[in-house]
Simulated scan of single mutants.
Amino acid sequence: MAFFLSCDSGDKRKEENAEDTVKVAQLTLNEETAKRIFELPTHCLTIEYPNKLGQVLGSDTDLKSPKALRPIFYGCFDWHSSVHGYWSIVRLLKQYPELDSDGKVRQLLKSHITKENLAVELAFFQDENNLSFERTYGWAWLFKLQQELRSWRNTDAQEWAETLQPLVDLLSERTQQYLSKLVYPIRTGQHDNTAFSLTLMYEYAEETGDMALLNAIKTNSIRFFEHDKNCNLAYEPSGYDFLSPCLEEAYLMSKVMPKDAYQNWLVIFMPVLFETEIETLQPAIVSDRTDGKLVHLDGLNFSRANCLYGIARVLPELKHTLVPLANAHIDFSLKNISGDDYMGSHWLGSFALLALSN
């Protein structure tokens, strides 16, 4: 009799554990979502206008079309969105090669990523008036693209990586120089956020063996953030945020600190993450997805999820709280990703993919 009771009890525990496993399983990419995301950058990589150039003009001769100035990364509204559009395409082609069954997208990349075109891009970054162009957000996405290319065992991808490497090397050196001069980190919820860029750069440097960059990121991240405490999520988000200053910092530090030290730091920095319910962290509401700034909040939902997944991976004891919360953020905004309005479609797919790939 006792044997059967033990079996019943064991079966019940297995059922409860199975339910818990389902409850904390993070959302992942599937073929249908991959196709939806893939269509967005493949459409906009060759869309030259509208375009936000963001450059400093030194003379009349600097007034050129986006394609003339940046023959690789001229589409998708601005330089950084074009770069992470390429990243999305490469990331998805590695996992779902059938998305480009006719080879047209690969041919497009082959015609864009050439040494001749890279020379023009490189010359722009060497112009004295634009040495800080896209620092550090666009630089970080270029590193992420390069990481994806170099890890893809594909002849075309290796050629593209070799072509882009001179620009990547230049920006790696500039990043190291910049970090040594940056007295205070930038804690905004938009492009300039220091922690977000350093996270992407860290992943590139770690995988590709750029040790000088990796060490600079580790050293300066600790310098910037080690003594921070009590980051208050109640003050987030701001109206235009697509990044969470608190969570981006917390995610970065999970990479640069040993696990035990990180856990001790996080308890002081964001004690709310150790609560059983985090009422201050709910999906951000977007009132108008045709407004290029207000739609940033969909991006915030994806980037928050990316951070929460990453933190939960380092501290599995937080999975039961953080993973369902991350899933809710993705669910809230993923259904709104479409090509209906360019203000969101030219960039949001990359942020959804970043979270779903974490």
Rank of each mutant, 00 (worst) to 15 (best):
F133M: 11
N358T: 14
L252G: 02
F3G: 15
V286D: 05
S81K: 03
L315W: 03
D192N: 13
A140H: 01
M257T: 05
Y342L: 08
M253R: 13
S59K: 08
S244K: 00
T188I: 09
F38C: 03
I186V: 15
E148P: 01
S238L: 10
L45I: 13
A68I: 05
F73K: 10
Q107D: 01
D210A: 09
A326C: 07
K181W: 03
C246F: 12
G209T: 13
E134K: 00
N264E: 12
E206F: 13
D298P: 13
V295M: 01
Y86I: 00
Y342Q: 06
N306F: 09
L29N: 13
N336V: 00
V295T: 05
N215V: 10
F124D: 11
L348I: 10
A205D: 11
F73G: 04
G339F: 06
P316Y: 05
L122K: 01
F269K: 06
E121D: 05
V24D: 06
W152M: 11
W139E: 00
Y262E: 06
P50I: 06
E206H: 11
H191T: 10
L171Q: 14
N232P: 08
K23M: 04
L247S: 09
H296Q: 05
A161L: 02
E159S: 11
E317A: 12
G75M: 00
L198D: 03
E121I: 00
L273G: 01
L294H: 09
A312R: 07
E121C: 00
I278Y: 07
K181F: 04
E279V: 11
Y184M: 11
L179C: 12
E207Y: 14
N129T: 09
C7K: 14
E15S: 13
I47S: 05
K218N: 13
N358I: 04
L200D: 08
L99H: 12
F125E: 10
A161V: 02
V286A: 07
Q165M: 12
K104T: 08
P324I: 02
R223N: 13
D78L: 04
S151D: 04
N327T: 08
P71T: 08
Y178D: 08
A195I: 07
E275N: 12
T208Q: 15
D340S: 10
D20L: 10
T163I: 11
L149P: 08
V168T: 13
R135D: 10
S81Y: 07
N306V: 00
E32H: 14
K23S: 10
V272M: 05
K67D: 02
L131A: 15
S6T: 15
L40V: 05
T194H: 04
D60N: 14
Y235L: 04
F3P: 14
D210M: 08
N215Y: 08
F351I: 06
E121Y: 02
D288M: 04
N264L: 07
V183G: 07
L266C: 15
A205F: 04
I217F: 10
V83D: 00
E128A: 14
